[in-house]
Design a protein around this nucleic acid. Structure first.
Length: 242
DNA sequence: GCGACAG
DNA sequence: ATCTTGTCGC
């Protein structure tokens, strides 16, 4: 029998109301582990994860691409198509994308050393963004790398690759992420802890997996793959309907 | 009531 | 995020 290597060590109902979703976040956020990894150089493979959607059908197309450093060439990929049962609500993204991403991860034959998500981790109103959520469910190292801000205040980082400024909760002054410049003359990205590493290490992962574009290579590849399977699915649907 | 708001 | 053409700039 084939062992399922990538499966959550804990789970919960995904068929919930927005109110219940917030309660789950407030409960699970206590399990986020910000202990630094003992040795970042032991991270050999990074999985980029992303989801695209079909406007009409509301279907989710999840993609995970496992890459190996130092060049971050893809070594394995997996996808999943699932109809969304939850709407997009700022702060509750993981309840929309989570089920499809979990299914895609379950298809992998090799466990990546770390998950890199297209979204926030701790830089979230309840400190439990997508990267924290799946990191905790899989009990696996995870990083959040978002293109836009969800919450927190910050200054603009210097226009030099690697430059970053703290993203803080203005009320508590808590450090929740790092606004990080990956390329000169390009808008910075929002990096935050997902699970089982430090903010410095999360930043380092994003910078190391970045090549010549704004976003880390694993995320770019997952983004492309999710779009590919979506377009393929929509084309197949057209051909069967006509 | 008004503005903000990952994907 | 998706729907969409061309267009400005390195």
């Amino acid at each position: 029998m084939m062992a399922m290597l990538m499966r959550p060590v804990r789970n919960h109902s995904w068929n919930v109301t927005p109110l219940e979703a917030r309660q789950i976040q407030e409960s699970l956020c206590q399990r986020v582990d910000v202990t630094p990894l003992p040795d970042l150089s032991q991270i050999k493979t990074v999985a980029g994860l992303d989801v695209s959607y079909a406007k009409e059908t509301n279907r989710c197309y999840a993609a995970v691409v496992v890459t190996r450093g130092p060049d971050w060439e893809p070594i394995e990929q997996a996808t999943a198509m699932l109809d969304a049962t939850f709407p997009y609500v700022p702060g509750l993204l993981s309840f929309r994308e989570g089920p499809a991403l979990i299914q895609a991860l379950s298809m992998l034959k090799h466990a990546p050393d770390l998950f890199l998500f297209d979204g926030q981790g701790l830089a979230h109103p309840r400190r439990f963004g997508l990267a924290c959520h799946l990191g905790v469910l899989f009990d696996h190292p995870a990083v959040g790398c978002a293109k836009r801000r969800l919450t927190g205040e910050h200054d603009i980082p210097g226009n030099t690759p690697g430059a970053w400024t703290p993203l803080r909760d203005e009320q508590t002054n808590e450090l929740i992420g790092a606004v990080t410049r990956t390329r000169r003359n390009v808008k910075p990205v929002y990096v935050s802890i997902g699970h089982q590493l430090s903010l410095d290490q999360a930043i380092e992962i994003v910078l190391q997996t970045q090549t010549r574009y704004r976003l880390p290579e694993p995320i770019r590849m997952a983004h492309r793959l999710s779009n590919e399977i979506r377009l393929a699915d929509l084309n197949a649907e057209d051909r069967s309907t006509h």
